[in-house]
């Protein structure tokens, strides 16, 4: 059977993610940095929930009360074409 890919952009499999999560007992952020899952062109829009789910799978206590999204979003959230970085071009 072909592998189960979780992050399509970087082609990271469920197996790799689970192994890494188990081996390093890591947070979703660390899991992302170690495997590159969620770091591709789409900015993790498609797989961030799954990465979080894998990272927290071992914990019984899910800490939802932190008031922040576990995998931080950073601008730009869409690729910026060259030449756009400038002053205000419109009113």
């Amino acid at each position: 059977m072909s592998t189960l890919i979780v992050c399509r952009c970087e082609e990271v499999s469920l197996e790799t993610l689970q192994k890494t999560a188990y081996q390093y007992h890591c947070s979703s952020r660390e899991l992302k940095l170690r495997t590159r899952a969620g770091m591709g062109v789409c900015g993790g829009r498609s797989c961030r929930m799954m990465i979080e789910q894998i990272a927290t799978a071992g914990d019984n206590e899910k800490n939802y009360e932190t008031e922040t999204i576990p995998l931080k979003y950073q601008p730009p959230i869409r690729p910026v074409p060259f030449g756009v970085w400038g002053g205000l071009s419109d009113e």
Binding site: R8, C9, E11, G40, V41, C42, R45, S46, P79, P81
Partner: peptide, 28 residues
């Protein structure tokens, strides 16, 4: 880019970026 596996549209509404092509020399 790395594995060479073929890709088509997935979300069709701009979220997944699977459908990137180069148009009149503009990539992505």
């Amino acid at each position: 880019e790395e594995s060479g596996s073929p890709r088509g549209i997935y979300c069709n509404i701009g979220h997944c970026f699977e459908c990137r092509v180069t148009v009149n020399d503009y990539p992505g």
